[in-house]
């Protein structure tokens, strides 16, 4: 049994190596899931690298609810103190997408928020700025101008946010409008209705089309996990978004409860990890909605640190979609500095 087993392993390995040495690559995949078109020998000299292959989304990995919730709870048991806390708070601040997504948004409101983004709390020197401002497409131009000269990105929601109930042409136009107005990042919503109907190809194609329309802008794909209801579905939607070309996957619009939770975020981080293992392509994560306290933000950072590690611990690959988190982080930072908690009146509400 012993020898046989080991031989079996070796045989497998040898066969794979043999296959690679002959063809130099896996079969190419054409657009669409599960459909493969072997082109192996036709482009042998040109394609040194393999293209990623798209899995069949009917068979995405399953998630055990009890297990994932237990694991998420374990991260909250880490004790974050002293210099780690200070480092974590500053990191959290730098990862915030300061957000205003209301029907009553005006140029004045957006400009104020942009100033806050650049100057979170000038009374405390040495603070980072937030990562981005997140607004509706109509406000992109205003935000872009207000943030001139800073490194802060402008993210725009698009694709008939938050419901996504519009024809593709409208969504594409929405996206192009945002990008033409200067958006560095586009936060799209997936068609949850189609997803729940099992139209995974539709959802995939739509994300791929929006990605194309984004051009150089980075695409964040909002799954709206509160409407997907199970972790299995969150994982499935994550995989579809990842393989369709998302630069970020994002939990929520903030308009639906529950928004981001730690277990949901963990499921998505694990999907990102599996995608990275498989393709070597790094994708970012943005939990959004419901994270308003520093302590919770630190728990998320611990989770990120222990699931994806150091390469993701920066605002290029991780964001918090939040509006009230910034002031709580600032309050905690001030407390670390002065030793006492200050009144909320000392921090600007924008």
């Amino acid at each position: 049994m012993v020898g046989k087993n080991r031989r079996y392993d070796n045989t497998e390995k040898d066969a794979t190596e043999l296959k690679n040495s002959i063809s130099g690559q896996e079969p190419m995949f054409v657009f669409g899931m599960g459909k493969t078109l072997p082109l192996a020998n036709t482009c042998l000299p040109m394609c040194a690298q393999q293209s990623i292959s798209i899995p069949d989304f009917r068979y995405t990995p399953c998630i055990d609810q009890v297990g994932v919730e237990e694991r998420a709870a374990r991260f909250t048991k880490r004790s974050i103190k002293k210099e780690t806390k200070l480092q974590g708070l500053k990191l959290a601040l730098s990862m915030i997408d300061l957000t205003t997504l209301e029907g009553k948004d005006t140029a004045g409101k957006v400009q104020q928020l942009c100033y806050k983004a650049m100057h979170p709390h000038d009374a405390l020197p040495g603070l980072p700025t937030v990562a981005a401002i997140c607004v509706y497409p109509s406000m992109v131009k205003i935000a872009k101008k207000a943030l001139e000269g800073s490194n802060i990105k402008v993210a725009s929601v698009a694709t008939a946010f938050p419901s996504g109930q519009a024809p593709r042409s409208v969504k594409l136009q929405d996206t192009k409008f945002a990008v033409q107005n200067g958006a560095d990042e586009v936060d799209m919503v997936i068609s949850r209705g189609k997803f729940l109907e099992g139209e995974y190809n539709f959802v995939f194609d739509e994300i791929a089309a929006i990605k194309e329309a984004c051009g150089p802008a980075r695409l964040k794909v909002i799954l709206e996990t509160g409407e997907l209801t199970t972790y299995d579905k969150v994982r499935k939607a994550s995989d579809i978004a990842l393989y369709a070309g998302a630069d970020f996957i994002k939990t929520s619009t903030g308009k639906i409860q529950p928004a981001a939770t730690m277990p949901v975020t963990l499921v998505m981080l694990e999907a990102i990890r599996d995608y990275y293992y498989e393709t070597g392509i790094q994708v970012g994560m943005k939990p959004a909605g419901g994270i308003s306290k520093s302590k919770l933000a630190l728990h998320y950072l611990v989770m990120l640190n222990e699931v994806l590690g150091a390469d993701w611990m920066n605002n290029h690959w991780f964001r918090f979609g939040a509006s009230s988190l910034a002031n709580d982080v600032l309050m905690q930072l001030a407390k670390e500095e002065t030793g006492v908690y200050q009144s909320g009146d000392y921090f600007s509400n924008d």
Binding site: Q50, I52, A208, N305, G309, A310
Partner: peptide, 14 residues
């Protein structure tokens, strides 16, 4: 649609 190329993932750094 042009599918992206596979890269070799680096080890995760913890």
């Amino acid at each position: 649609m042009q599918l992206p190329k596979k890269k070799t993932p680096k080890a995760l750094k913890f």
